[in-house]
Design a protein around this nucleic acid. Structure first.
Lengths: 200, 200
DNA sequence: CCAGTTGTTGATCGTTTGATCACCTAAGGC
DNA sequence: GCCTTAGGTGATCAAACGATCAACAACTGG
């Protein structure tokens, strides 16, 4: 089909199934992050640049598509090396905590992750609670052990959640409430960690 | 209409418009808090114990109903006396901050408020940002002045948001993520305030 | 160049949604 | 008791929703 400028503009572009599925999934992540899982498949298809019917060639239902969005967003987000580095006592505790939270926030302070995590939390998704259970047991608890070993005083889990929440709240302010926040959360993280360690 | 047990069960109960509107609004707050504003008017009506058509005798549209839910949830939630008490220097700073955050969390740590606030935040509601702007300018900023006056060192706004976020995150864990938290947030608040004031 | 494969589409189905209507009936004044 | 008022209901509409299907057309191998 020749366009006005003479170039050929095919109305349909055939993609390999893998590429097309990836394109739809990426659009779904962005779309559901913005409007939540109540967003319609028609608007999603328009945003992805495909027809609504095509969605159902790659995902059997809307539920299966949202499931794929969950997996994409959650999977591989927590780097197992973080725990090893948290426990590497060759480095001062303060530096380890700052490094961890800079890495952690670099991983989750994205528009897609923060918002989909919050949508899923409100919807009562189980994956959400499992993720936070993992954070508490596999990250915060060991972190508490390191703090106890270095300072001689073991913080309670509620103290650790307070440290964690104060830092994560930066991302909530920015991506959920769309309030202005420092471009780089690093200094705020350092200050929060310093305050936390200064206390007995 | 006589029921099986002989008592008269009127199929329709007439209520004064004020009482009926209040009943619907209360049900709407609870319902939208649970499932978000994408919840259907039919399910809401069933929950309120009225017919769906009746909703539209008291609210012109679903948008007007959600607007009323917003007002109900937001309005009068911030007590102006809190600011006065924060500035009352006859009491030690530490005690003032603890008292404030105990009152503040007592006001907002409810299933309805926390969840509707989060739903509205994700939806991009303007009332949400206005509320948090108010918190920053009318509560956190004066709080910073009091801390500066008492300790000789003025905290930055980002530090204050960190204190605030760490405490609010208790409510987020409980009502948004449905994770177990201490029944009484008081001790955690005291500890967070103590840590914050101990730092220079 | 052509035929077969298959990625893609427009049209459409049944259901659910917000919203409206004519009609019904409970309650209060006489 | 009766009649007027007004709170409440069942039925229904148009639009939007998730999902399906036959038909189309872009690419591949020959």
């Amino acid at each position: 089909m020749p366009a006005l400028d003479g170039t050929v503009v095919p109305r349909r572009r055939r993609l390999e199934p893998e590429a097309r599925r990836e394109q739809i999934l990426a659009a779904a992540v962005a779309w559901f992050a913005e409007v939540g899982f109540a967003g319609t498949t028609r608007d999603l298809a328009r945003r992805a640049g495909v027809t609504q019917a095509l969605l159902y060639k790659y995902f059997a239902s809307k539920a299966e598509l949202t499931e794929a969005v969950f997996e994409r967003v959650y999977l591989g987000r927590l780097d197992p090396r973080w725990l090893d580095e948290l426990r590497d006592r060759r480095m001062p505790l303060h530096a380890r905590l700052c490094r961890f939270y800079r890495q952690y926030t670099a991983a989750i302070f994205t528009y897609e992750w923060m918002r989909i995590f919050m949508w899923a939390g409100l919807a009562g998704d189980a994956l959400n609670r499992r993720y936070l259970g993992h954070v508490g047991e596999r990250l915060l608890a060991p972190m508490g052990q390191e703090i106890a070993a270095a300072t001689g005083h073991a913080p309670g889990m509620e103290d650790l959640w307070n440290l964690h929440g104060g830092i994560v709240y930066i991302g909530i302010r920015r991506f959920i409430y769309r309030l202005p926040t420092p471009e780089d959360p690093g200094p705020a993280i350092d200050a929060a960690v310093a305050r936390f360690l200064r206390a007995p």
